[in-house]
Design a binder for these strands. Sequence first.
DNA 1: CGTGGAGTTGAATACGATCAACACCGGTGG
DNA 2: CCACCGGTGTTGATCGTATTCAACTCCACG
Lengths: 193, 193
Amino acid sequence: MFEEFRKYLGYRINISESAFGEVIKLMVLKKACKHETLLKAGETYHKGYFVLKGCIRSYCISNGKEFVMQFAPEHWWMGDKNTLAKPGPALLNIDALEDSWVLQFGPDFLEKMERIAPEFRYMMQDIQQNNYRAMQERVINLLGLNADEKYTQFIKTYPGLANRVPLQMIASYIGVTPQTLSRVRAKVYAPVL
Amino acid sequence: MFEEFRKYLGYRINISESAFGEVIKLMVLKKACKHETLLKAGETYHKGYFVLKGCIRSYCISNGKEFVMQFAPEHWWMGDKNTLAKPGPALLNIDALEDSWVLQFGPDFLEKMERIAPEFRYMMQDIQQNNYRAMQERVINLLGLNADEKYTQFIKTYPGLANRVPLQMIASYIGVTPQTLSRVRAKVYAPVL
DNA sequence: CGTGGAGTTGAATACGATCAACACCGGTGG
DNA sequence: CCACCGGTGTTGATCGTATTCAACTCCACG
C-alpha cells in the first residue's frame, strides 16, 4: 500500500529511501469504509489525508445546506486548509465515498516533512499553488457558466469521476439541483442519432 | 506615507525599526491614478501590492467576459497568488479604481521578508490563510445564496465599499447583472415607510 | 420480499437575464 | 457658459433557464 505513495513521490521529486522512510513514519495507514467519517467540522485536532485507493470528499454545512468542496480520488491530497497552519476547529467534514485506503497525518506534518528534505517543501508549495488556482477557476466557472458548461468543466477537472461519485454530489459541487444535472446528462449524452 | 504601513505592521506584530527599514527597502512607493494598470495578465515579472490609500482591484478575462476577483482598499494586500511562488505569466489584471498610493514589491519579496524576521512569516501565513478561507466562503456564497443575500454578504466582506466602487464591478464580483443588482439595492434600501 | 435512497422525467413556477428606453452626472470642447 | 457626449445606473417588459413540486422507476440492501 505504501508502495503506491512511493510511486507518487517518485514521479514528482527525487528523494532517498531513508527520507521516504522518515516521511511515512509521520503517517498512519488507514482503511476508510464507504460513508465513514474521517474529519468532523468542529474537531480541533487537524487531520489531513493522502488517498491511496478509493475516493473521499470534503463538504461543509451552511444554512442547513450541504456543499461539496472537493473530491479526492487516488493520488489526491485532502485536508481542511483553513486550519492547516492556524489552530482552531475544522470547518470542513471529510468522509469516504467508497471503501478507501488513505494515509492520515497530523497538524504538524507539513512542517516536519519539510525538515526532512527541501524537495518536499517545493512539492507541497506547488500543490498548494495548484489548489489555489483550482479554487479560482471554480469561482470563475460558478460566475460565468451555465449548467451544461459547468458539468463539462467538472468532467475536465475530475476525469473519470463523473460516473463514479453520486450525481447529487456532483450537482452540489457545481451548484445546480440534481434534477437539472440529470437533464443535462440526458441532453449531453443524448442517444447518438 | 510609509508611516501608514508602519502602523499596519504595529497592529499585527512586534518588529524593530531596523527590521522595518529593511522591509521597506524591498518595496517601491508608487502612485496609481484612477484607471491605471498595475499588472497585466501575461506579464512574467510578478508584482504584488499593499494599498496605503485608495482602492485597487484584480480581475481576469475568461470567454471574453470580465470577472472581478478581488477588491483591495486601504490596508489590503493584492497580488496574483497563482504566480506568487511559481514563475509564469500572470493570470490576473490589477488596476486602480481611485487615485491610490501603493507599495509595490517583486516576486521574491515574501521570501526575503521572511528572512528579515520570523514574525513576518507568521503574519503572511496568517494572511494567506484568511485569503484562502475568504475564497472558500465566496464559493459557498455563489453556490447557496440568491441575489439579495449575495449583496448583503458583499457588504459584510467589504464594509464601506458598496458605495465606493462602481455598481457594475460589485455585480461582476457577486455574479449578477448590473440591472439585477440595481433592483436589489432599490428593494433592500427601500424608502423607509 | 419489501423498503428507502438515488436517479429520471414531466409540469408549473420563479428568479434573474436580456432587451430597451431613459435619467443623471462629469468631463470636454465649442 | 452651455451644449454635447459617453459612461453609469435605473426602471419596465419580456424571455429563458434552472428550481421546485411531484410521480415514478430502479436497484441495493436488510
